[in-house]
Design a protein around this nucleic acid. Sequence first.
DNA 1: TGTACATCAGTGAACGCGCGTTCACTGATGTAC
DNA 2: TGTACATCAGTGAACGCGCGTTCACTGATGTAC
Lengths: 191, 191
Amino acid sequence: MSTSEKSGYHHGDLRAALLSAAMEMLEAGEPFSLRAIARSAGVSQTAPYRHFKDRDALESALAVEGFRDLLASLGQGRNPPASVQDLAEFAVAYVAFALRRPALFRVMFGKPCDDADDERVKAADALHELLAAALDQVFPEADASALASAGWGLAHGLAYLYLDGKLHAESSGEVAERVRGAFLAIASVGP
Amino acid sequence: MSTSEKSGYHHGDLRAALLSAAMEMLEAGEPFSLRAIARSAGVSQTAPYRHFKDRDALESALAVEGFRDLLASLGQGRNPPASVQDLAEFAVAYVAFALRRPALFRVMFGKPCDDADDERVKAADALHELLAAALDQVFPEADASALASAGWGLAHGLAYLYLDGKLHAESSGEVAERVRGAFLAIASVGP
DNA sequence: TGTACATCAGTGAACGCGCGTTCACTGATGTAC
DNA sequence: TGTACATCAGTGAACGCGCGTTCACTGATGTAC
């Protein structure tokens, strides 16, 4: 951030360049390493250490960006949810994000949060809160926390099951339909 | 299997010994590699190649064992489910398994199934079918497939969220309670 | 305005690491006659 | 029963790999006087 703003230095803004190179590599499904990123940013393999303490730091920065993007795609073009159907669309968007950017999704969630990285923890929490707020809006009388965990868990689990090939679908449209169906099915069985 | 039965050979049953060494290492949270497993089985580092084509083959064998164990712990000491409460206990058991054997759980689910490995695919399918059957038993009139995906997704997602530190709980008892709560909460909101 | 100095971004060579896999081999077990 | 042979489980050395990280460095940018 602070680094990103001064430009005109040697490289201009290596930090941002490294992050976007890393994103591209993740997107392309290439294996992710400091050296590869440096290479792809056209810079010596030790240059990243100017901007990131170590591999983990870079990974966390990516995760933070990922959480922001995910939040954005959950929110964009959507009114506050008012019905179970609206909530199902959250799940659909969540799974779609995971399938659109699988490697990034794995980086975001793939390891226990290091409590050390404030930004990362905050970004994950923001997601949780968004979901809780959405559920609270639709079911103000229910236990929002339990519902939020359930909604999140459901979307998250379906995302991973599709990602890991345990559930199968032909197209992204079919995935969306299945996710919607699962969400509505479980929300309507009642005790 | 065929190999496991003849004993009195050089080692007796290296295949089984390697698998159980691998399990122990996973259980102990140690990084998993062919060499480490060979070492820990007290055998030269190339010996495993007698029994497993490559790393993937060994990993798949572990996954298959894992699926069997998971199926067993879902079934054991349980009558066929008759209510939403019973189903919630499935989810509780599922998440408990994941938290009890996190590294194994990641091996089981951590990568797209290679269609090549029949046993592995079958083991994963067996799990899916068990869940579908359970749900069908409780809600015979509903769309069992959508419900099964939902139930599985919910349990799977909660498992990963706890595993990756995105949800937190003090004790395994608390996890169980939260999972149960989430499951019952979402199953009772109705449309 | 010009010079001397401090700061700091990026370099290039090198370290040690464990890994998966191959190869030609040794030596124990089982089998045919 | 004993010998000759085939089979196959396990050995040991070696390959090439990319990785994260360190180190002392160079050279460009900004700053004080």
